[in-house]
Design a protein around this nucleic acid. Structure first.
Lengths: 336, 336
DNA sequence: CTGAAAGCGCTTACAG
DNA sequence: CTGAAAGCGCTTACAG
């Protein structure tokens, strides 16, 4: 593998000159520049990043940190969708992406992650940090690495989705369509902060018209399609008069749609179902799913942009991104 | 950030000694070892990887390369599922994972990818290399980086899934169930080698009982759920007497199930539908999907194991992993 | 059993 | 406008 020195020899200049020409410093003769560039070309020189990293302290690597607790990265289309945004924006700025999936315990992330953070490999970190269990940020802050969290753990720089508003909008949509007997498919308590905010938003919308939110039947669907099916079976069995089901994510809503059909409900006439996230599948479900669009890729992109600004020493403010209700075929006025 | 030298000073030994103690070289007094370890502990020393990389040439980073052509990584649950296996096995061996998604053209991968390959950052590469357009491997081989391809491009080390057998099994399953009027939902020609092998397997199974494979109606579903819906509409409209639909992947099968229901077919009584991949959703679909289990995570894990063996200078042979038919509720004997 | 020193490939004040 | 030299943090023959 050719080095700077090889290029320097070939071009008949010093390594310092090559280095500076390559980093586009001004003050060089056209002649020198040309000589260097030609040598680079002929030799097929590409800078050795470890060498550069050692002298500059910059690696050009961003780590995306997705704690492994609930298999979120690989199981949740929403997370993958967000990762897509992270990838796009990093790629556009020439950064490489390291995928880190620390195993989380109540003591914090595992040793391997700690090592990575301290290794000097990373210019910055983008962390999904919504799990109450433990924050992935503690070691990151300790080492003082530039970091943007997507989530609710308290930290200086973060991107959040307006979960409260999303919850509010979706409940309001149901209520204004005339639904009053509404079941809610939730997640296990204290597993994800954003879910709590969605519930608060729903509660506010219900109470705005003096409805007792606490009285609405709720069953945990544990995030998954199967969980959504089970929760729906329970809800519709115990409360056959429900006219609407609100699910805290799209996957559970997909399960709800399937289960409701199995129980011979006409959708949306007998039962309206809404999800949350607007994962790609939501639109191609039959009936297509009314849901909250969190703009997952944009969350990822915004996080990268914020991180780059921090690395640039620019002034940065945390961001809460708006969400939008997407009305599709799975909801209507109650017919019964 | 503390360095080797800080540790050496604190322990009252040379940096060479610290380095060797840390890399577990024998021939050290218990006393020395203890002194060093204590200093490491107290200071909270973690090796700087760029420094180590520069002197050893090893970085501890593996790149997973998923060409971006058809958005495969982020759109295809099968690919994510495989990535999960790659991650597990890399993590287990202490390697970090770099996610590289080169943009592919017929000229080859983009410049940024080439740079990465030449950067000295990577100990090895695992590449998804099934796209006929161009191989991602050419620059990798040029730079002589250890590499395992998951796919059909010709290369020394590869992992393949036995697509031929999968195609054979699935067709045989349909035929032995008594189906003869079978429609096939394919993908656009020449977009993925493994699909060609599945089709060959199907053809062989059909011809084994003297059925004319070429005569079976085929429509491209373009990989997606929506594509599967459209293809199904076309097939069932033009050939209302079909009793079975074979889909080249699960996503299209999911679309097929939805569309068939929309067209008032009872599943599986009026129509049997099979997919391919056994993505996580396949089992929780209603009706649950008969499909070919490719053991996606195991493909990923096997690729990492093979890569580590290559890095270890061990003798390695390419591998074709078996697949298994998973019979679920979406198929039965033809009732009509 | 331990250490001095060179070297991995780059960049960056500093001097000229 | 260009170059000599030090230094980034580690490892590894080599010597003792």
């Amino acid at each position: 593998m050719p080095t700077l020195e090889d290029v320097a020899k070939k071009a008949g200049v010093s390594t310092a000159t090559v280095s500076k020409v390559l980093s586009n410093t001004p003050y060089f003769t056209e002649v020198t520049r040309a000589k260097v560039m030609q040598a680079v070309e002929e030799i097929g020189y590409v800078p050795h990043l470890a060498g550069r990293a050692l002298s500059t302290g910059k690696t050009g690597i961003i780590a995306v940190v997705f704690p492994y607790v609930y298999d979120s990265l690989f199981t949740d289309p929403f997370v993958v969708y967000m990762l897509q945004g992270v990838e796009e924006e990093s790629y556009a700025h020439g950064y490489n992406l390291l995928l880190s999936t620390p195993r989380l315990t109540s003591d914090g992330p595992d040793q391997q992650f700690i090592q990575l953070i301290h290794s000097g490999y990373l210019d910055g970190v983008i962390a999904l940090d919504n799990v109450p269990l433990a924050s992935v940020l503690e070691p990151v802050h300790k080492r003082d690495i530039a970091c943007v969290a997507i989530g609710y753990h308290p930290t200086q720089y973060f991107i959040r989705s307006d979960d409260y508003s999303g919850g509010f909008q979706i409940m309001q949509h149901m209520l204004s369509s005339g639904h009053r007997r509404i079941g809610i498919i939730t997640v296990p308590d204290a597993t994800n902060f954003s879910m709590d905010h969605r519930l608060s938003g729903m509660q506010a919308a219900a109470e705005a018209i003096d409805l007792d939110f606490a009285a609405m039947p709720k069953v945990s669907g544990n995030y998954s399609i199967e969980g959504g099916m089970n929760a729906t079976r329970v809800l519709l069995t115990e409360h056959p008069d429900l006219t609407a089901l609100i699910c805290l994510n799209d996957r559970m809503a997909i399960g709800a749609v399937q289960q409701a059909r199995t129980m011979n409900r006409q959708l949306p006439d007998d039962l309206s179902i809404v999800g949350y996230d607007d994962i790609p599948t939501a639109a191609s479900l039959v009936p297509s799913l009314t849901t909250i669009d969190q703009h997952a890729p944009e969350l990822g992109r915004a996080a990268v942009r914020m991180l780059l600004q921090i690395l640039d020493k620019r002034v940065v403010k945390p961001l809460t991104l708006p969400v939008h209700l997407v009305v599709r075929e799975s909801t209507s006025f109650p017919k019964s």
